[in-house]
Amino acid sequence: MITAEQKPIQEIIGYIAPYGKILLVGCNECVTVCAAGGRKEVGLLASALHLNSLKQGKTIDIKEITLERQCDPEYVEELISYINDVDAVVSMACGCGVQTIAGRYNTPVFPAVNTKFMGASKSQGIWEERCQGCGDCMLGITGGICPVARCSKSLLNGPCGGTSAGQCEIGPDTDCAWRLIWERLVELGIQDRYEELNEAKDWRPAGGAGPRRIIREDLA
């Protein structure tokens, strides 16, 4: 999923300072799962913004709504009945959701979260990066562990010389991806594959050729 974290409250307050009527929009997908911008977080942020207004001796009108999927124009269309009554929108979705709203309505939209990475849940409350969307998945030859996303240098042919006790040189909290890959290849009995050269990557599918697009003729 796409992970996100709420922005510092002062930054959000700064964005909406000129406005009195706010539409605060959550999303039921990834940001709900990573507890950054679902219905619950929409409620909490609305309370925090109200409290701040009270402290400042101002009033603020906040309409809360959580869409099924903010990156989908079909659901964003649901905002049509509220949009004319507000001065600004604050989105708690990832950057895709923010931009879908901005592309549809002629009302200022501000992000309330920082979109972080494509990750998986490691354990309760911990998410870790697992994919950088390079567009040419090599997990099939690296034992199911991604060197592009999980090696700090995205090295394609093995570990650098900086690993200490099996951990990355950037710090002991980060596993050396190539140590994990090697252990996995050994476990699967296919460590000979390590010595096959992975050529310099074609970064075009990773975004090197400009913004990416998928067109499915059968669906479009």
């Binding site: 093995g158 570990p159 010389g161 900086g162 690993t163 099996g166 252990e183 050994v186 460590q191 390590y194």
Partner: peptide, 17 residues
């Protein structure tokens, strides 16, 4: 080449590459 960094068993293979 770093003959010492972990995993040690991989370090000859790394040189071979």
């Amino acid at each position: 080449a770093n003959p010492f960094a972990d995993p040690f068993e991989l370090r000859v293979a790394r040189l071979a590459k």
